[in-house]
């Protein structure tokens, strides 16, 4: 057995294809991106090395709205952590109590998560449609016709409208993760607390939520990095418009590279997004592990 499991040829055959694929598709491109981000290059003419110039241009005397795009993604992260996750937590705790129909609700809430973002995006464009969309139709039907709007075409409402669709799609995702976290807590703990006369709310705040810290940390990291990396829904619904009002770093990166052919500058955006995600992941995990000690 040990002889079989130590045979070099078999081991190589088992890992080499994976190693090559990961190296070629994931590792090497990162270094290319880093390299591109120091160039002024349109993909056709000769590249010029400009050092950190592209990174400086992201923030100093910026004219293409990158700063606003970063702010938008921060707002999305804030909404996601401040509204979406607490709401998902309430749903998760309610379902995790073992109510009747728990499986049904869990299954239904999760449906939007698995559907393609292109479908969700197209669907919400129809929901927001000025003349025949579901939202305006409902508003008219309940006598709030004055509130109707061309939601995605109006610079004042476009960003919020896109965010609503994003929050709507992923509530079920965080609900499921938090639900699993709540379910993994041993029922014995509740039994003991009940004997001590603790009520449902007390148990939720003093037992369930503190014990769910690891999964809450995971959810917050996902919500924040997911907001920084968000692309699909915005690309489908508004592509950053109208007038850049819904621009986020990824949509701007995409336009910069594939419409304006600023390969170097666009790569600097990509690298910025990765670093931003790494930093926030580390900080959030640090905050949570510190809290756990206290």
């Amino acid at each position: 057995m040990d002889r079989l499991l130590s045979r070099k040829r078999t081991i190589l055959l088992f890992i080499l294809p994976t190693f090559i694929l990961l190296t070629v598709i994931i590792v090497i491109p990162i270094f290319f991106s880093l390299h591109y981000s120091t160039l002024k290059w349109d993909g056709f003419s000769k590249e010029v090395f400009v050092g950190f110039e592209n990174y400086k241009n992201l923030f100093v005397n910026n004219t293409d709205g990158f700063i606003q795009a970063v702010i938008n993604s921060l707002v999305l992260a804030l909404i996601s952590v401040g509204i979406q996750i607490p709401f998902s937590l309430v749903l998760a705790l309610t379902l995790a109590r073992g109510i009747r129909g728990e499986r049904f609700f869990r299954t239904v809430y999760f449906i939007p998560v698995i559907i393609s973002t292109v479908v969700i995006g197209q669907l919400w464009m129809k929901i927001y449609n000025n003349d025949y969309g579901m939202l305006n139709t409902v508003l008219k039907a309940i006598g709030l016709g004055s509130l109707t709007d061309a939601w995605l075409a109006d610079t004042k409402t476009a960003l919020a409208s896109v965010f609503v669709a994003m929050v709507w799609q992923y509530v079920g995702y965080y609900m499921l993760l938090l639900y699993a976290g709540a379910k993994s807590i041993s029922p014995d703990i509740y039994e003991a607390a009940r004997i001590d006369g603790a009520g449902e709310a007390t148990m939720a705040f003093h037992i369930t939520i503190p014990l769910m810290k690891p999964i809450l940390a995971v959810c917050i990291v996902f919500a924040v990095t997911g907001s920084f990396k968000a692309f699909d829904l915005i690309y489908v619904m508004t592509n950053g418009g109208p007038l850049h009002s819904t621009e986020v770093p990824t949509t701007l990166m995409y336009t910069t590279i594939f419409t304006r052919y600023q390969y170097g500058y666009g790569s600097a955006m990509a690298i910025f997004i990765i670093i931003e995600c790494l930093v926030f992941t580390l900080v959030i995990n640090k905050l949570f592990s510190k809290n756990a000690v206290e």
């Binding site: 130590s6 598709i25 290319f32 995600c277």
Partner: peptide, 26 residues
């Protein structure tokens, strides 16, 4: 049984951190 199995797993874990965006243009 091979020496680098742990290192290889770590290498793979690093791959998990990389978003698509960073590899798109290359």
């Amino acid at each position: 049984h091979w020496k680098l199995s742990h290192a290889f797993l770590n290498f793979i874990l690093l791959g998990m951190m990389v978003p698509l965006h960073a590899t798109l243009l290359p």
